[in-house]
Structure formats: C-alpha cells, structure tokens
C-alpha cells in the first residue's frame, strides 16, 4: 500500500507545540491540585460535588492532549497508511461523551435532591484551633478552583490558536467559562448558610446543565470533524476559506482551465483532493506534480492534497 509521508510542522510551530506541551503539563498538575483541594472541602454539598466532578473531568483534555501529541506524529506505515493525525479527534469525541454522561448523571442526582427536599448539612471544622463553618472553607476552595483555570485559560487560548489545537482551545474556552460554575456553587453554599435548603441542589443542577452544554458543544464539534465537515479555523465558527484559496491558486496556473478543491480536517491538519480540468494533456503529469508541491506548501496546516485531472467538462 502507498504510505503517506510523515507530516512535519514548521520550526516555529514546532516550538509553539513544545511550549503548549509544557503549559499543559502545568495545567494538569494545577488541576490535580484543584481536585485535591475540592475533595477536602466537599462536605455534603451537592453544588460542591457537581463542581468537583467537573474539575475531575477537566483533567481529561490535558491528559488526552499530552497522550495524543506523543503518538500522532508517528510515521504512517503499512498498517496505518494515513498516519495517526486523527487521534486528536478520537480523544475529543471521547472527552465530550464523558462530559455529557457525567452532566446527565449530576443533573438527575441534583433533581432527586430537589424533589425529595433534602436539607443539606454543612458543619463546622477545627482549623488551627478555631471552629470554622465549613461553608467558608468550601468558598475558599471554589475561589482556588476558579482563579487557576481562568489565568491558564488565557495563555492556553493564545497558544492553541497558533498551532490549531482544537482540543486545547475548547478546554481553554471551558476553563474561562468555569468562573460561572464556581460562582453558582458559592451562591449555593452561601444560600444553605442562609437557611435555604434548595439553594445547594439548585446550584448543583445549574452546574450540571453547564457540564451538559459543554459536552454537547464538544460532541457536535467532534462529530463534525469525524464526518469530514467543511474545515474551520480553531478560533472561528465560520468555515475556513482555505479550499477556495487553493482552488483560486490552481485556476491562476496557465495550464489549468478549471479547478475545485475539497478539504477535510484530520485533527490539527487538513487534507483533501483537488479536481483539475487542464487546457490540454501536454506535460500533464509534470504540471500536476508541480501544482501538488505548490498546494502542499500553501499553508502549514495542509498535510496532503491529491490532484486528480478531469477531462473536458466541469468537475462536477
């Protein structure tokens, strides 16, 4: 079988990836510390429980990125002639399903607590010789769990955009939106302190809805990638103009009468086909080889474009 050549990142992008890997390690370590801190402050609060599960799930994107980045640059081989680029998409799909399921579970759990009118108990603990209401400890833990992703999310977003890492970009977006779930949990805890038994479970339900919506957004994105939807740039929701750019470039070549291009996303890179109607068959193989080289160097995200010549009429 014809095996693809390995994909090679340009040097500056390679350095950016290395920076991103370091950032994601830092992200992973800090997020594990958040999970630990939240665990010790959990108590019987439903809102805290929901927040904690969300913190655990938010380890997934970092872990998956760090795993995938290690394996996806393996050279394509007889067994996997298209290479391993799509690992990213598989990881993304798995993470989104995990989010959806956990969100659903937490929503049901919170609703049961609401319906059964369960009165949450938040007790008192001894800290440094003082009796402190556990609610204050919970809020301190929540503040910690909000500030770190908010700060890291800012750097993640910038770096991920540079290297077209969708998983990290989606993670950064979620981290930056996490302050809302933190605030909801804090209000839930404070509400319990004010004697409103429903505040906690309601906050828990809101947080689960947020987890579900994150899961749904990611799932839609992952399914779109799997279905080879029209490629999009990381930071944008509109389709990328890259296929039209490539087609225009082909049409500008003197031997080309008509051309159209079709692209798909393979993780962080694009591949696809170009269909070309030449003016004549003279020198055709040479022309196609030249054009292929030109297209593949058009943008760093392009992995492999295959050009197919078509006779006479339009390509459709």
């Amino acid at each position: 079988m014809k095996v693809r050549a390995a994909y090679r990142l340009p040097d500056d992008k390679h350095r950016a990836i290395e920076r991103l890997v370091r950032l994601e390690w830092l992200n992973l370590v800090l997020r594990i510390s958040i999970v630990a801190v939240m665990y010790f402050a959990l108590g019987n609060s439903q809102a805290m429980k929901a927040g904690w599960y969300e913190d655990i799930l938010s380890l997934l994107p970092a872990i998956m990125f760090l795993l995938v980045v290690r394996f996806r640059d393996r050279t394509p081989n007889e067994r996997y002639p298209y290479g391993y680029q799509r690992l990213t998409i598989i990881a993304f799909l798995a993470a989104s399903v995990a989010l959806l399921m956990m969100g659903g579970f937490l929503l049901v759990d919170s609703l049961i607590k609401l319906v059964s009118m369960e009165h949450p108990t938040i007790g008192v603990i001894e800290l440094f010789g003082h009796s402190i209401w556990m609610g204050w400890v919970m809020i301190a833990a929540l503040a910690y769990s909000v500030v770190i992703p908010l700060t890291l999310g800012f750097f993640q977003e910038r770096l991920a955009e540079q290297v077209h890492e969708k998983t990290v970009y989606a993670d950064a977006k979620m981290s930056k939106a996490d302050w809302m779930t933190g605030l909801a949990a804090a209000i839930g805890v404070l509400g319990v302190g004010a004697g409103w038994w429903w505040a906690d479970a309601l906050a828990g339900a809101l947080i689960s809805l947020d987890i579900i919506s994150d899961g749904f957004k990611n799932l839609r994105e992952a399914v779109g990638d799997t279905l080879d939807r029209h490629p999009r740039f990381t930071a944008k929701t509109e389709p990328s103009p890259l296929p039209e750019e490539l087609a225009a470039r082909l049409r500008a070549m003197p031997w080309v009468k008509h051309a159209e291009v079709r692209l798909r996303e393979e993780g962080h890179v694009f591949s696809g086909e170009a269909f070309v109607v030449p003016h004549s068959d003279d020198n055709l193989t040479h022309n196609i080889a030249e054009a292929t080289r030109a297209l593949n160097h058009h943008d760093w995200r392009l992995y492999e474009i295959v050009i197919t010549p078509l006779p006479g009429v339009g390509p459709r």
Partner: peptide, 24 residues
C-alpha cells in the same frame, strides 16, 4: 472576577448581621 467579589462581599455583609450559618 469583579462580579464574583461583589457577590461574595454582598453575602459577607448580610452574613454576620443575621447569624451565619442559619438553620433550615
């Protein structure tokens, strides 16, 4: 961030005035 602090501050002010935490 400002919203978060404002919310905390507001509840902190309400808290001690009417004994915190309270029973359901």
């Amino acid at each position: 961030r400002r919203l978060l602090w404002l919310a905390c501050l507001a509840l902190l002010l309400v808290g001690p005035g009417c004994r915190y935490p309270r029973d359901v």
